[in-house]
């Protein structure tokens, strides 16, 4: 073991504190009996109870989940196509422009993206009568727009790691290009599809700025409701909500980690077995 200086240890402690003390405080205060967020009045589940009676918050959560699921699915679909073109189409005219345009929503200020999308919806509605007002559909479309950029990057990097000759081998054995895609490429990049989908899901779930532009009166998402209620004063109910979200996220991460760890272990064991057999020959 190397000699760890007190400086390094305090740097580590400070870093962790910076990241996690606010979240810890939030969790602790969600069990606070008192109505005042900053005054400890004893342990209780009171605010969790109130949370599950708040129709407005629950409704918003439902809308948010629905939008997140739909836009993540759409973004994964479109992002896969874009990633495929970027990784497999070779050089074509306007490739640099295409790749720049795909990643633009990632660097563009969200206010501008939101405004642009709002403008598009307004013009479209005037010309074609669709979309009829703004609501869940328009939010979903807006979320798909920026989430797709992230999904494309994830898929493209997975595809460029993949050995091209695997696809060529399938074609060599008689599979037409479309079949190669569904039988070979898609199953191999499936993990990237899943992580792209999850990424798009979380991006959609906590987006506030773009959503505000694309939302209508009857389609407030969870972040919008939380944000507006916090402006009237923070209630411990929000702390309870946040604690649940943190808990779910932690659970998801731990589960994903566990599954991946187990797969890795299985792979290692199988590899060792194969090597042992070869040596025995």
């Amino acid at each position: 073991m190397t000699n760890r200086s007190p400086f390094l240890i305090s740097a580590l402690a400070f870093g962790f504190a910076f990241l996690y003390v606010p979240i810890l405080l939030l969790i602790v205060f969600s069990f606070n009996e008192s109505k005042l967020v900053t005054v400890w009045g004893g342990f209780s589940f009171k605010w969790y109870g109130e949370l599950f009676q708040d129709e407005q918050l629950l409704g918003a959560a439902k809308i948010s989940l629905l939008i997140a699921a739909m836009s993540a699915t759409l973004a994964t679909l479109l992002g896969t196509m874009a990633g495929l073109i970027m990784a497999r189409f070779g050089r074509f005219k306007g490739r640099t422009l295409f790749s720049g345009m795909i990643t633009a929503p990632m660097v563009m200020p969200e206010v501008i993206t939101g405004l642009a999308i709002l403008l598009m919806f307004v013009v479209l509605e005037e010309l074609t009568g669709w979309p009829d007002g703004r609501g869940i559909t328009t939010i979903t479309i807006a979320h798909t727009t920026f989430a797709m950029a992230y999904v494309t990057i994830v898929i493209q990097s997975r595809l460029s790691q993949m050995d091209d000759s695997v696809e060529e081998a399938a074609m060599d054995l008689g599979a037409r290009p479309l079949k190669v895609f569904f039988l070979i490429t898609l199953p191999i990049i499936a993990p990237a599809l899943v992580s792209g989908w999850l990424l798009a899901f979380t991006l959609s779930l906590d987006d506030l700025v773009t959503t505000s532009f694309a939302a209508g009166p009857s389609s407030s998402t969870l972040p919008m409701v939380v944000f507006s209620s916090v402006r009237l004063g923070v209630t411990p109910k929000i702390n309870a909500l946040a604690t649940i979200v943190v808990g779910l996220a932690t659970l998801a991460i731990v589960m994903a980690g566990y599954i991946m760890h187990r797969q890795e272990q299985q792979r290692k064991r199988a590899m060792q077995r194969a090597l042992a057999e070869q040596d025995a020959l």
Binding site: S165, V166, A169, D172, A175, R176
Partner: peptide, 20 residues
Amino acid sequence: VPPYERPVNMMFQSYALFPH
């Protein structure tokens, strides 16, 4: 003629086995 219609098969240097 495209590869999937030729009466030849290829064994790749990287083997290119289907991992899944």
